[in-house]
Structures are given as C-alpha cells and as structure tokens.
Computed example of a mutant assay.
Amino acid sequence: MATKKRGPVGRPRGFDADEALERAMLVFWEHGYEGASLASLTDAMGISTTSMYAAFGNKEELFRKVLERYTEGPSAYLARALGEPTALGVATAVLTGVVRTTTRPARPHGCLGVQGALATSDPGQGVRDLLADWRNDGCCRLRERFQRAVDEGDLPPEADPGLLARYVSTLAFGIAVQAASGVGSDELQEMADAALRGWPLS
C-alpha cells in the first residue's frame, strides 16, 4: 500500500501579509517612523511582534517595505504624471495628485515620504537617508522629463529642467506639509493652480 506523501511541516502564517502591510503603512503615514511604536504597529497589523519580525524583519525593514507600497499605491500619481504629453501637464498632474493624496478623508493627511522621518533620532538615520533618496529620486525623474520637454521643443530652450523639477518638488512637499496641518484640498488646489500660471511655454 502506497504511503501518502506529507506536505512540508510548518505552522501557517495565519494572517494576510498584504493587509498587514497596508495597516502598517497607515500607522507610519500618520505617526512617522519614530512615532510609530512596535506596539502600535503590531496592534494595527493584528499580529505579534514575533510574527512581524518573521514576516517583515525589524522596524526599519518593515518601513522600507511600506515605502515601496506607498510608492506603488498612494504615491503612484508621480509615475502616471510623467506620462503626460506636455511638461505643464506633468507639473499639473503632480500637484493635483499630491493634493488628492494628502487630503483624502479616509487616509492620514500629509505625505509619508515627507513626514516619515522629520524627527528621527540618530538610530533612525538609515530611514532619514532612505527618505531623502526617495524624494531626490522623484525630483531626478522630473528633471529628466523636463529635459526631454526642452529637447522636443515643448519647453523653451532657455528653460532650466533642474530648476523646474526642484520648483515642482518643493511645491509638492509644501502642499503635503500644509495638508498635514489641516489645510483643505480646495485651498491647496487653488495654490497649486496659481503656482503654475507663470509656467514657461515654448
């Protein structure tokens, strides 16, 4: 009589890792890296500290996974904006995306990438550096897109792609800080629209 093959012995994870990561993202987004305690994270995720370490690593590794999720989810407006046919369209889509993402009623206000490590102590230096790189990467992608706009004649030849990219990035981060302070979406959108009225056109 043939013996039945047994599957691998092991305890099932017992929780939805994707859902747990989503909940961790909301905690970090609302409280920042340092403000999010292990207790608040595991409580929101519905798992033990042991399970968190086993599935996601330590707090910094969990934050790195959360930032990836944020980039591909709430912050995906940047990738979509880069596909706009004009530089002005790109800038408009970025700022509109920031306003929408940072003021959504069902989500924390502000931007995870801006507020995540504003007050981290020395042990959080890795996260501070990670977020600085994250913000700089977005600015670099904008600069490359605006350089293409200059090359294609969509922006005037004297336009400075680096300066425009930094301008849009600074506006976006400023909007996020204002949103976290309670400024409403209508007022922020008006500010964004006003900021782009002097956009250079070819």
Rank of each mutant, 00 (worst) to 15 (best):
A2Q: 10
R6P: 02
P8W: 02
R13I: 14
G14I: 02
F15L: 05
E19C: 09
L21C: 10
L26N: 04
L26H: 10
L26K: 11
E30I: 06
H31T: 12
H31I: 06
G32C: 06
G35P: 08
G35F: 03
A36T: 00
S37Q: 11
L41F: 11
D43K: 14
A44P: 12
A44S: 14
M45Q: 06
M45D: 02
M52T: 06
M52C: 11
Y53I: 12
G57Y: 04
G57N: 06
G57M: 07
G57W: 07
G57Q: 03
K59C: 06
F63T: 04
V66M: 06
V66F: 05
V66D: 03
L67T: 05
E72V: 01
G73A: 10
P74F: 01
P74I: 03
S75Y: 07
Y77V: 01
Y77Q: 01
Y77F: 14
A81I: 01
A81Q: 05
G83N: 05
T86C: 08
A87C: 10
A93D: 06
V94T: 05
L95E: 10
T96F: 05
V98G: 04
R100F: 04
T102I: 04
R104F: 13
R104E: 15
P105Y: 03
P108S: 12
G110M: 04
Q115I: 04
G116S: 07
L118V: 12
A119G: 00
T120G: 00
D122S: 10
P123W: 03
G124V: 11
Q125E: 03
Q125V: 00
V127K: 09
V127W: 09
L131T: 13
W134S: 05
G138N: 07
C139A: 12
C140E: 15
E144M: 05
E144V: 02
F146S: 02
R148M: 11
V150T: 07
D160G: 08
P161A: 01
G162E: 07
L164T: 11
V168Q: 01
S169Y: 04
T170H: 12
L171M: 14
L171V: 09
L171A: 14
A176L: 07
A180L: 09
S185A: 15
S185I: 07
D186C: 00
Q189C: 01
E190T: 15
A192T: 12
A192C: 13
D193T: 15
D193E: 15
A195S: 15
R197P: 07
G198A: 13
G198M: 11
W199P: 13
P200I: 07
